[in-house]
Simulated assay, not measured.
Amino acid sequence: MAKRQFIYKNPDVDLKLKYRKIFEASLIIAMAILILILFSFKKFEAEYELEKKVDVQIETIDIPQTEQINRPPPPARPSIPIASEDEDIPEELTIEETEIDFTQPLDEAPPPPPEEDEPIVEFYALSEKPEVIHRVEPAYPELARKAGIEGMVVAKVLIDTKGNVEKVEIVKSHPMLDDAAKAAAKDFKFKPGKQRDRFVKVWMTIPFTFRLKK
């Protein structure tokens, strides 16, 4: 017959026997760690709350008392006339006649208001440009002819709404020829310029060339 061998475990190394003690020790250690974590977290929150606090300073400002303006009272309403019962007022009143002497000279009537100057329109703004109807050639000055002087004079003329030359200005001058050019420019006749179907005043230049016949 075969012999049976029995194996006996040493109670010092048997884990099943020590399982309860190990579990209790582990549980105590875990609870201790958890308590430490909770206490440290509360301290952190307290420090964080203290850092978040902000010092609030309240300043008091003295507001001056506003002055009330006393408005004047509204004007009194006009009284409504009421018929009087006094018998002393006469029922009929007579107005004396006034006589006017038409033989005396009347005061002179005031002069009529001056006519407003018509506006001067720029040449480029015209819808119809002025056209020369009558041109006058200037007379050659005798002194300039004898001295053999030639040249050009440019006159600037203001043409009114009737086509007449109202004003003359010399733009390009020659001392011995200006007067002759100015006299000729005054006798020019134009068809007046138009702007929007109405005649207007406008400035225009006229060149005069003085040449001696050879």
Rank of each mutant, 00 (worst) to 15 (best):
N70Q: 14
P72M: 01
P72E: 10
P73T: 13
P73R: 15
P74C: 09
P74F: 11
P74W: 10
P74M: 11
P74E: 13
P75E: 12
P75K: 14
P75A: 08
P75V: 00
A76M: 12
A76D: 03
A76S: 12
R77Y: 13
P78K: 02
P78C: 05
P78R: 03
P78A: 07
P78W: 02
P78S: 06
S79G: 01
S79R: 07
S79H: 12
I80F: 07
P81L: 08
P81K: 00
P81C: 03
P81E: 06
P81D: 07
I82H: 02
I82C: 02
A83S: 10
A83P: 06
S84I: 08
S84R: 03
S84D: 03
S84G: 02
E85N: 10
E85F: 05
E85L: 07
D86V: 06
D86H: 05
D86M: 01
D86Y: 06
D86C: 03
D86T: 00
E87N: 00
E87K: 13
D88G: 01
I89Q: 03
I89A: 03
P90F: 03
P90I: 07
P90Y: 04
P90Q: 04
P90N: 07
P90T: 02
E91N: 07
E91K: 15
E91Y: 13
E91R: 04
E91P: 00
E91F: 09
E91A: 13
E92Q: 10
E92W: 08
L93A: 12
L93Q: 01
T94H: 15
T94P: 01
T94R: 12
I95L: 13
I95D: 02
I95P: 00
E96N: 14
E96H: 03
E96F: 08
E96M: 11
E96G: 10
E96T: 14
E97G: 01
E97S: 14
E99F: 08
E99I: 10
E99Q: 05
I100E: 14
I100P: 00
I100N: 11
I100M: 15
D101A: 08
D101N: 15
D101I: 12
F102W: 14
T103C: 01
T103E: 14
T103Y: 12
T103N: 15
T103P: 00
T103A: 04
T103V: 00
Q104W: 01
Q104P: 00
Q104K: 11
P105G: 07
P105V: 02
P105L: 12
P105A: 13
P105M: 05
L106I: 01
D107K: 11
D107L: 12
E108Q: 11
E108V: 14
A109K: 04
P110L: 15
P110A: 15
P110K: 08
P110C: 06
P110E: 14
P111R: 02
P111L: 02
P111K: 08
P112Q: 13
P113Y: 07
P113S: 12
P113F: 13
P114E: 04
P114Y: 03
P114N: 04
E115N: 09
E116L: 09
E116I: 15
E116W: 06
